[in-house]
Amino acid sequence: MVVVSFPDSLLLHAVGDISGVEAVLWDLVAGPATDERIEVVIAPYLGAAQALDAVADLPACRLVQLQSAGYDGVFDVVPERIGVANAAGVYDAPTAELALGLTLASLRGIPDAVRSGDSARWVPLGQRTSLADQRVLIVGYGSVGTAIARRFNAFDVSLTAVASRARAGDDLVDTVHGIDELPSLLPDHDVVVVIVPLNDSTHQLVDEAFLAAMPEGALLVNVARGPVADTDALVRHAGRLRIALDVTDPEPLPDGHPLWSAPDVLITPHAGGNTTALLPRMAELLREQLTTVAAGDAPRHLVRPIVKT
């Protein structure tokens, strides 16, 4: 039997019984584990990097399964002897939905309409920008980026994709450009959606030069991580550009921060993945992963391999 710790009973019950798996509850935030037999730790949904240092005290632990696609900060606290798997695929649809929703809301002036409605006033929006015929650049063409492209494709846009390295295209784009091509691509696009992982090479990728290269009136949508963008640069370019953010740096964004009142800025409070689709899709992933581990095989989505002893 493989002993697996779950961070809460809701997730444990959603996953259900799995042959070859003994499930135990361990709230990593509440205190140290009381069961030294734990071999697989399922991280909490929020604050994984802050809680996972406790796994270092588990002698039998060989795998941490994250409930997030991102894993920034996790390697700093989880010992190298322990493998790490992320939740790739779980957030594709919800994040893609929000990226599209932020884009449509910003282009069509929905925040202005809501503000007018709050004061019970009919204020015409005037002519707004249609998503149709816009040139859309997706920066970060992994599984979430592809899901975003698939949804945007239904809106009669032209699509360009960028990844860490150039490669062949797919059914949505003729080619995938390398990130080194960004300076020449940015001036020719009306909507730029950022969905890169946060690492040393993407920290403040969206900086002064990035934003200055975007044409006036273009829209930046960040559904990646807050530190991917330089917040001070965002404030400086707000108004010249439209900006829609699901993530900020710092996060939570403090009350009264200049970004809240900057012109043409729409902010959602890191809500991309938290939908009704989350629990059933997470439970399905965990059932697949734990069934594989119980059979003695390597799980999918390893971002750091399991060290064999």
Score class of each variant (00 low, 15 high):
277 A>Q: 11
285 L>C: 10
266 L>Y: 05
280 P>H: 01
280 P>E: 05
276 T>R: 15
295 A>H: 11
261 S>E: 12
296 G>W: 03
262 A>D: 02
272 G>H: 04
289 Q>G: 06
271 A>W: 09
307 V>Y: 13
290 L>P: 01
259 L>I: 10
265 V>E: 03
294 A>G: 06
298 A>D: 15
283 A>W: 00
272 G>F: 06
287 R>P: 00
289 Q>R: 11
290 L>G: 01
266 L>G: 02
300 R>M: 13
258 P>K: 01
267 I>R: 07
266 L>E: 11
305 P>F: 02
290 L>S: 00
269 P>V: 10
281 R>W: 10
283 A>Q: 09
292 T>S: 11
285 L>M: 15
265 V>L: 08
305 P>R: 07
271 A>S: 14
264 D>M: 11
261 S>R: 13
284 E>H: 12
306 I>W: 04
300 R>E: 15
293 V>C: 06
292 T>F: 07
271 A>N: 08
303 V>Y: 06
302 L>M: 04
273 G>H: 00
268 T>A: 08
268 T>E: 03
284 E>C: 11
259 L>D: 04
305 P>H: 08
266 L>W: 05
295 A>P: 03
300 R>C: 12
303 V>L: 07
291 T>P: 02
274 N>D: 15
303 V>Q: 01
262 A>Y: 05
302 L>T: 05
298 A>N: 11
288 E>A: 14
297 D>E: 13
268 T>K: 01
282 M>G: 04
299 P>S: 08
304 R>D: 03
271 A>M: 13
292 T>C: 10
290 L>Q: 01
261 S>V: 14
292 T>L: 07
264 D>R: 13
276 T>I: 12
286 L>I: 10
263 P>W: 12
308 K>T: 14
258 P>W: 05
277 A>P: 00
293 V>K: 03
279 L>H: 02
259 L>A: 05
295 A>D: 12
282 M>Y: 05
300 R>H: 15
273 G>Q: 02
308 K>M: 13
295 A>R: 12
278 L>Q: 01
275 T>Q: 03
276 T>A: 14
305 P>I: 03
262 A>E: 02
307 V>Q: 13
279 L>K: 00
278 L>N: 04
307 V>W: 12
290 L>A: 03
276 T>F: 11
261 S>K: 12
288 E>G: 14
304 R>W: 08
273 G>Y: 01
271 A>T: 12
285 L>T: 09
261 S>I: 14
262 A>Q: 04
307 V>K: 12
257 H>C: 10
305 P>E: 10
265 V>N: 00
303 V>C: 04
268 T>P: 00
292 T>N: 13
281 R>K: 12
308 K>Q: 15
302 L>D: 08
281 R>S: 15
287 R>Q: 08
294 A>C: 09
263 P>V: 08
269 P>I: 10
262 A>H: 00
289 Q>H: 10
300 R>I: 14
286 L>T: 02
268 T>C: 02
258 P>S: 05
265 V>A: 07
287 R>D: 00
293 V>I: 15
266 L>P: 01
263 P>Q: 11
302 L>C: 08
258 P>T: 07
301 H>L: 14
271 A>P: 04
286 L>K: 02
292 T>M: 08
306 I>T: 08
278 L>D: 01
